[in-house]
Structures are given as structure tokens and as C-alpha cells.
Amino acid sequence: MNSDTGQDPRTFDDLVAEAEAAPTEGWDFSWFEGRATEARPSWRYAESMAHRLAGATASLDIQTGGGEVLASAATLPPLAVATEGWPANVAKATALLHPRGVAVVASPEDAPLPFADAAFDLVTSRHPVKAHFAEIARVLRPGGTYFAQHVGPASVFEVVEYFLGPQPAEVRNARHPERERAEAEAAGLEVADLRVERLRIEFHDIGAVVHFLRKVVWMVPGFTVAAYRPRLRELHERILADGPFVAHSTRHLFDLRKPVVSNR
């Protein structure tokens, strides 16, 4: 920080160049320290997931990213598997999780899960692109659990709509928790718990916005600095004049059960 003005001495071009050079693999968000903040859900997903993993015998983490959340668990089941579809993340997750005894399987997000029926007693996921509940139900054992944190509807849409303009209702309502509840129940899963929260995000410089859009690529599809430079510069000036750009994420926690079918 500039000690005379209190303002960051880096220019728009400096901040953007730094963000463009930053690696985007995995779900490590430490690059944002001091540049952006996001409130966390009250249910503390990583800690709650770790507690579930400690009591499981066979677990599957779907769309594990770089494996960072799964690796944060102190105790893993005797059989632990993770899937990931993006090649760069597959390599990162493999390096991180193999030493912990976790098998990382390269599997496209929209493909059937490459596992036998009733293979796992716990399936987890943090921020899946889409939860395929029929496949989750198929690979769960009777009595097994799907425990996951999902991104909710219109999450960080202040950023999306700044660049893309107002979005139609069907786009804003995608990933709605009640719609996903209905999909889960249609797949034969029972909802033991569903919690929803809306959380404040602050972007303190334009570099944080650029890095976010490069990392979370589905927010503004096809985003490049070159394509959006005028809007980025306008937002940079707005942040300098008015302070952090404020957005809101939406999150929901699913605790689902596969029923035990009585033979009577």
C-alpha cells in the first residue's frame, strides 16, 4: 500500500497482468488473501465432511477439483475414491491424494459414475457442477449417505450480470435447492437435511475479479481480459472510487439417505 495515499500503487495493467499469470488449477483459493473475502456457511462443510469420513468404510468424493477439501480430512475410510473431469485437476488431485491412499479416477462430469452398484456408504461433493442424483443413488449402499455442499441459484450474479447483463429467470433459478430436492427424491433418496444460506463476497481489486472469472469458468463463459477490457477498466475505476465490489454467493447443504429396503 502507498503510505501517503493509502491506495494500492499498482495500476490497472499491473493488477490484470498479475491475475492473468496466476495458476487456476484446483480449488485452492489462497491467492485471494487480502484481495477478496467471502463469508463461509455456518455449517462448516469441510469439518462436517471430515467427521462423516472418519466413520465411513468406503467413500467417493465426486468432482474433487484438486483434492484440497478431501485432503483436509484427518482420517479417511479404508477405501477412499475421488473423481475429477478436468485433466489439470486430475493431475493435481492425484499428487495430493495418492499419498493418502485415495484412488483418483478421471471421469467426465456428465458421464455415468464408473463404479458398481452399492459400492459406497458415503458419497461427498463440494460444489459439483451438477449432481446426478440417479447415479449417486445407484452407487450408494442402502442406508448410505450423500453429504454435499452445492452452489445455489444466482450465485455471484452481481459479477455475472455486470459483464453479461440481466439474465433470464430460468438461468437465475438454475440450481435451486427445491428443484434439486425434487430430483433427489425422484431418484429414490430421502432428504434428512437441507440448509440454505446467502453469503457476502467482496472483491477489493480488479485482479481478484479477473482471477475469479479465469478460475470459475462457467460464470462468464469464454471470459478473456481482451474481450472484456473496457468493462474491467470501468470496474477498476469503480472499486477505486467506491470501495470493494460486493456480490453474494448462495450455498445449500444436502444430507441425503438411500433407504434400506425391508425384505418383509
Rank of each mutant, 00 (worst) to 15 (best):
L97Q: 04
S59F: 12
A56K: 10
G85Y: 00
S125W: 00
R231H: 12
A118F: 02
E84A: 00
L53N: 13
S125F: 00
A58R: 08
S249W: 06
V246I: 13
V171C: 08
A74V: 14
P153N: 04
A36C: 06
P230Q: 03
P128T: 00
A93D: 02
H127K: 00
V196F: 15
P230W: 05
A36T: 06
A247V: 05
A73S: 12
G55S: 12
E47C: 09
P177M: 10
R138T: 00
R175H: 06
V69M: 09
R257K: 10
L253I: 11
A148N: 00
T124M: 01
I239K: 14
L240C: 11
R198P: 07
P128M: 00
E84C: 00
F12I: 06
S30I: 06
L194M: 14
P153L: 03
R35P: 00
P177V: 08
D14Y: 00
F147P: 02
D117C: 02
M219R: 14
R40G: 12
I201S: 11
P9C: 01
R195W: 11
W43V: 11
L213V: 11
W218D: 07
P259D: 10
A134Y: 01
N2A: 03
A46N: 12
E190P: 09
H51A: 15
P41V: 06
F203D: 04
E25C: 05
V90W: 02
R100S: 06
E180A: 13
T37Q: 08
